[in-house]
Design a protein around this nucleic acid. Structure first.
Lengths: 103, 103
DNA sequence: TATCATGTATTGGATATCCGATACATTTAA
DNA sequence: TTAAATGTATCGGATATCCAATACATGATA
């Protein structure tokens, strides 16, 4: 689904400033697989060009933060996520609690 | 993100048997935009070939249901969804309740 | 019966996501 | 000082997702 990678990047940056690999690590913690540089950096570049995030070079690192536009975008995305998946998430939580089947 | 369309199709079919357009309508209710036939039918075909769903022709309709393998797949996917997005969903819910910003 | 509506199915093209490989830069450790 | 580690960045190719257009089939309505 389009927009999920973007949403996840914004989400993690909504928590704290991070560099590219830290973002990838965070996503890996959730998904079980780590996005490769070929995935992360073009996406970060795109978000930067769209003005949603900004990167500050610091030695070999580039630490990214949300811009104000990025915060707004994240907020809107959060609402969309809730609308689209809120009930699914709740039911998945229950499924996990029950460690049971799905019927 | 890969797998979301598949997951959403399985999710809706986990509720009840549906035809292609009904599935698309359900997804539209969540996302605000309805997947086109070019999106839905190849995906359904793929799921059928993978043995996760089966379609029963009935006049001009083809009603799809989950196979046992499909139910297992959905169950696994639900657990994955919870792992990857459970806390995000909870926080998005709170954001919507507060109708506030994200900081 | 003809027309319209609804549903399935495919195709071509676009695009977001993704990987692996490669290159470069900076920092850290030996 | 050299080697290793870490981080950024790009590229080419693959693939899931997606759209619009087209075609066909069936059912409902006029």
């Amino acid at each position: 689904m389009r927009g999920m990678l973007t949403f996840q990047i914004l989400w993690e940056l909504g928590k704290e400033p991070l560099n590219g690999q830290q973002i990838a690590d965070r996503i890996a913690e959730r998904r079980g697989t780590k996005p490769t540089p070929g995935t992360i950096y073009p996406a970060l570049k795109d978000l930067e060009e769209r003005g949603l995030i900004q990167g500050e070079k610091s030695g070999r690192q580039k630490v990214y933060t949300l811009t104000d536009a990025g915060k707004k975008g994240l907020n809107d995305s959060a609402k969309y996520f809730h609308q689209a998946f809120g009930d699914i998430a709740e039911e998945c939580r229950i499924i996990v609690l029950k460690t049971g089947g799905c019927d």
